[in-house]
Nucleic acid binder design. Structure first.
Lengths: 355, 355
DNA sequence: CAATGAACTGGGAGCGCTCCCAATTCTGTG
DNA sequence: CACAGAATTGGGAGCGCTCCCAGTTCATTG
């Protein structure tokens, strides 16, 4: 079943049917209705490949996740939320989403090969969670593909489009809050240091300490990953240095850390205050004080930006930094009324934050 | 850049380049190497649309999730695991995955329209979590599309291909275990009763009671959804009927229920034993006794089956039922050595289970 | 060294659309 | 009622592949 068949049945030409399908002008109302009725009756749907061949547009967008989605131990809702946000924008703009997940034990090069070989079937890429040792970035630039990064790119290339939050400000905000609550020995468990977000959050942690005239003690910094396991082991390690507070670079990390704290017979927040990051589902569940990270919106904005670029609505490189804020719950020891009283204290960009 | 360009550079014809790209015979080793080198050098990748147009194959598979991925309150790793499994099979078979997520507040009809309008760009569909009031099923059959369902279809149509577990056996296994531990008033909180899995697990619950000569008390059955919120409220409601055990149709449901039990000043498992279902990440975290549900493998098998059908390797309808088993942890009150001693007690199909 | 068959190579046709331009029909006006 | 100009309609060309068949080259043998 093709345009010609429909045309024959409607007693018009291929071209007219094409105009009707694409909602173009220059078709009389009468003809349009007749053709539409036949398309409906026959359940006709135009051949995507043929259309893509001539328009050089596929209306498909690739989403690349160079991690297995469940790589993180425990309840990590980050990727589902990100995907949901992207999916929302993509469906609003009437497109489809191709999803590429790195496989367990799949070498990065193999994964990239897989992803890039699909470049002729999509109009652009959204790339998330790129670790610094991942060469996909250079390939995409060399091939002159249209793409948007979620999280800031490793190499700060002004020409690259990305959507992120100000992770430096986030780390700073968390630690400033702990300092304000009188904590003196503030530790941190970082995320994967090959991911820019983790680097920036650590930078924010240090910045807050320096600003408050407090020492940056390497003993209190544990390089981990965004998961509960590393939170648990990281905290076990850190306990020897007697911290009275912890900034965990992820909520699941915080959950793991709290488990270690309790196992050591200490209380949260009395003995050790804890602040997480991201406000994943798990944060509300554990009543975790955390930095709100608009993950879903980040996905939405990234997809919207990519489609704007594809449609030529955006040509200049864009760097979108979404606002964050602190959510005070039970684990930092602050007055629970804090949230209400600090509605206006939200996002303050760092002077030297990426833009 | 197209085949013709490569051909010119290599001093051969379009056809020869095509043969090389598709790894076909009838090309001399010398020519093959030369062409390959040029393809490599130029970074050429064949036009997907043109190829799809002539072969009538896109090598893309649609995955349809008629739920928002994060619709469930809390930490539900079901969909990420399912996707990971599908993705594994799809990438092994050298294909791409188109993901369709229903949007918040998107009407089912609109979603279906969106999904079906993509049917000309994919070779087949994998459909998951279809609720009984979802008409997508009929549309797919009428359009004679190739598709596989994850979870058994609502209308038991022998011709439909699906991959699932034996949910009746699962419910029965859980409840039998509780009965064996001497529990007398076993309650259940069901999943979404518009989903076949939830229906079947309830049927299994009832079957186990009947087999043991115990009454099926409607007061002890709470119709919920697969999430912690309904687990919590469901349990609060059930407490008035003094149950001494609970079979929750999902792990998150169990987690919510446990919260309600503890808030009522009761202990798990001493006062109320709890068994969940699925063995999601959250189950291990909470040391939940549960029924192991091979979610990732289910995704893998579904995708493999679909691709087999597309390739014509499978023509007869297949109904794949994956094995389940009980995982004893802390919430049912059984001897923790149970797992070791019962290695062989695994999956026992119900005589009247769907096949 | 010519004949023969196998191995390799080339190019036309066609997949089902969109785009463009030419042809046709319709409308309103002198 | 003829005619200009606008609105509508039709059909050829071409997007970049694969498939098929015909033509060419090559090695082998009598």
């Amino acid at each position: 079943m093709n345009l010609e068949d429909i045309a024959k049945k409607a007693g018009v030409s291929r071209s007219t049917v094409s105009r009707v399908i694409n909602d173009e002008p220059h078709v009389s109302e009468k003809t349009r209705r007749r053709v539409l009725a036949i398309i409906q009756r026959e359940g006709f749907s135009p051949n995507h490949a043929a259309r893509a061949l001539v328009t050089q547009r596929t209306n498909i967008v690739s989403v690349v996740v160079p991690q297995t989605m469940n790589i993180f131990f425990g309840d990590n809702s980050y990727y589902p939320m990100l995907l949901q946000g992207m999916s929302e924008a993509i469906s609003q703009r009437d497109r489809a989403m191709l999803l590429w997940l790195q496989q367990m034990n799949e070498r990065v090069e193999v994964f990239i090969e897989r992803v890039l070989s699909s470049r002729r079937m999509v109009d652009g890429f959204i790339i998330s969670s790129v670790r610094s040792n991942n060469p996909i970035f250079d390939y995409l630039i060399n091939l002159k593909t249209t793409f948007v990064m979620v999280e800031r790119p490793w190499r700060l290339d002004e020409k690259v489009n990305y959507v992120t939050i100000d992770n430096i400000a986030a780390g700073r905000m968390a630690v400033k809050h702990l300092i304000g609550l009188g904590r003196k020995r503030i530790a941190t468990i970082t995320g994967d240091m090959l991911i820019a977000d983790a680097q920036d959050r650590l930078a924010g942690y240090k910045a807050a300490l320096v600003e408050a005239g407090m020492p940056v003690n390497p003993d209190l910094i544990f390089h981990g990953y965004f998961n509960a396991e590393y939170g648990y082991h990281g905290m076990k390690y850190l306990l020897q240095y007697k911290p009275d507070a912890l900034f965990a670079a992820g909520d699941t990390t915080a959950v793991g850390a709290i488990k270690a704290i309790r196992e050591a017979g200490l209380r949260v927040p009395d003995d050790i205050a804890v602040i997480g990051h991201d406000d994943l589902d798990v944060a509300a569940q554990y009543n975790l004080t955390t930095i709100y990270h608009p993950v879903q919106r980040k996905g939405f904005e990234a997809a919207s930006l990519l489609i704007d670029m594809i449609e030529g609505k955006v040509t200049e490189p864009r760097h979108i930094i979404l606002p964050i804020h602190l959510i005070v719950r039970d684990t930092c020891g602050a007055d629970p009324l804090w949230n209400q009283n600090n509605r206006e204290v939200r996002y303050e960009p760092m002077p030297n934050s990426p833009t």
